[in-house]
Design a binder for these strands. Structure first.
Lengths: 342, 342
DNA sequence: TATGATATTGTTATCGATAACAAATATAAG
DNA sequence: CTTATATTTGTTATCGATAACAATATCATA
């Protein structure tokens, strides 16, 4: 049944021309007569011929890039990936996806080599910066590694990065809580070995300092991004910091757990207690009550990364490398009911 | 700087042996002396040589498969993808990802041809069955298309499918509501041009019929999976069907909106009103109150799909095709507070 | 009609790896 | 010390496409 694959030779034979002529038609070159071109096109269609990308890849520039991610179960990651896939589709690029089994993986060699074997034009590294994984990844890059674009980490620690300004976002959210008249604003952070978590915490602290609050009295607890850990962190805060009347939570999922506990304890949000999150997941508009948060443009982030990869391809880019290349996106404050004291 | 890529020839020259010997070492063949093998390995490491996958791909069986998805923003899809990536990683397979811009896309030819160009060993089609898109996709497959595995649709409508039994899951959830003593159980469905939505609705109806309820009196409204549409559907139900005392919602996100509206209206869940969802997203444990739902093993679904692709590769599989090949997974009922009348 | 410019097609070498076959070397048996 | 056998290495052709170059056909102009 499954007869052997159709090649350019089969098409050439059917058209009674040379393979080169077929190749010319495939590549839309001008030096083919109209009639020949039409005939070849027809035969190609009729036979369902598809040029072999491997053979092509041996002679042409690659149109494939790699994506290394971790934590696809997180909304932010999967949305970033969506931005990447759509932008890739738009430009006819192929995308080979690699997911790390966990955030601690730092030996990228096998993954990167597998991508290099596919002659990728570049690699988007979209796994978050946790502990010193970025540095270790960068120290362990194989020789002749294709250009890499790093997302979701410290703008300065890699040559090419596209980051979201978590510090600024957290600062915005916290300032908003202050303006709303909350006095004792706690923080539930993400795991502090994450760069993003540290930045958000830093934004919270600085906003308090700039508002003249006594920082030594404000408290924070660490969560692990998931609702369960957020719940525990909030319970610790409740007992250690009874004067707390608001909390800035480092992501929406943990904020959901805080709302949940508040509801169980009969606390009224936002009147008794203010809650703000971070990320802007779509569900947060339907929390009880709707959650104030900072919205991040993950999809734009992904699209931007692909654009950067394409730029690196272009010849003029191979000019003088001007040190590190950094782009920073800023989250937007999204005020909802959970922080709007009557 | 970026000196030309290192090839097998460079390695051969450095080792003062033929390229064939290098190739033998690369493929772990036995007919190489220990000393030669060791030397070659050392040089390969030292030079950072990586065999070109294109050149290899021209002579060897492919280790790459394609994945076509749509709606990465949905938890179910991204989790399925995670199952796929991890299973692929486990077996050293590469994965080229294609995302459809929308669910209505039925002209797969460009996508599939691009995958065929990469000589994929198979394709996992993980975009849901909406309207008659599956049939149209299958009618429009290019000739010599690699084997495809269809997920998330009607088990019978494609030759190879792995499905989740949405009917059974919905039946379980609805039966549970009945057992809890709710009398007038409405349904908020997904968009009914989705196969999955129709199946869930069918399960709801059948459970009511089997319990001897008068089906003509039970009502349902259609949502679009997102919380906003769920909210509107619930408001329509509230006015059209005032005797309603419970609702089975076709996914957790819309159920979140229902809880939200119930809270706004001062309805007490579960005592005044029962709410059950579908999907089992992790956040649903922290809704207010925690949501009863049917949990689907999306990750297992993805892993299974990869396993199926690998099986298709094996020679013994190319024996007599026995019509369609179907696997069905059943969701599990997860009872939480939102349906537990004290 | 001859001539050079232009348009169209074909030939050969090549990309990097591997299969199939051939050759050389080492080892064992008689 | 041969001859047979096993082990190790090298040579050539090949996968499918394209680049570089060569060849032919077509046309306008002097």
């Amino acid at each position: 049944m499954q007869q052997t694959k159709i090649t350019i030779k089969d098409v050439a034979k059917a058209c009674r021309v040379s393979t080169q002529t077929i190749s010319r038609v495939l590549n839309n070159r001008t030096d083919v007569s109209k009639s020949t071109r039409a005939k070849v096109r027809a035969v190609i269609d009729q036979m369902g011929y598809q040029p072999n990308a491997f053979a092509r890849g041996m002679r042409q520039q690659s149109t494939t890039f790699g994506v290394i991610i971790a934590g696809l179960q997180h909304k932010g990651i999967s949305t970033t990936l969506k931005g990447i896939t759509l932008e890739a589709e738009n430009h006819g690029l192929n995308l080979i996806l690699k997911e790390l089994p966990n955030f601690e993986t730092v030996d990228m060699k096998p993954l990167i080599q597998s991508l290099m074997a596919h002659q990728v034009m570049g690699i988007i590294y979209a796994a978050p910066e946790v502990d010193n994984n970025w540095r270790r990844v960068q120290e362990n890059l194989p020789p002749h590694c294709p250009p890499m674009v790093f997302l979701k980490g410290n703008p300065s620690s890699a040559p090419i990065t596209i980051s979201i300004d978590n510090y600024q976002g957290a600062y915005l959210v916290t300032s908003h809580l202050i303006e709303q008249g909350y006095r004792n604003i706690a923080h539930i952070s993400g795991p502090l070995n994450w760069f993003e978590a540290r930045e958000r915490k830093r934004g919270w602290e600085q906003a308090l300092v700039d508002a003249g609050r006594d920082i030594s009295k404000q408290q924070s607890e660490q969560g692990l991004w998931d609702p369960g850990s957020g719940q525990k962190a909030f319970e610790r805060l409740s007992s250690n910091y009874p004067e707390m009347d608001a909390v800035f939570v480092a992501n929406d999922q943990m904020a959901l757990a805080v709302l949940h506990v508040a509801w169980k304890h009969g606390l009224t949000v936002p009147d008794d207690f203010g809650v703000a999150g971070f990320d802007g997941i779509s569900e947060s508009a339907f929390f009880v009550p709707p959650l104030t948060t900072a919205i991040q443009d993950f999809r734009g982030l992904g699209a931007l990364a692909v654009r950067k990869i394409r730029q690196l391809q272009e010849p003029e880019m191979s000019g003088p490398k001007v040190g590190s290349d950094t782009t920073i996106l800023t989250p937007k404050l999204l005020v909802r009911q959970s922080t709007q004291k009557d």
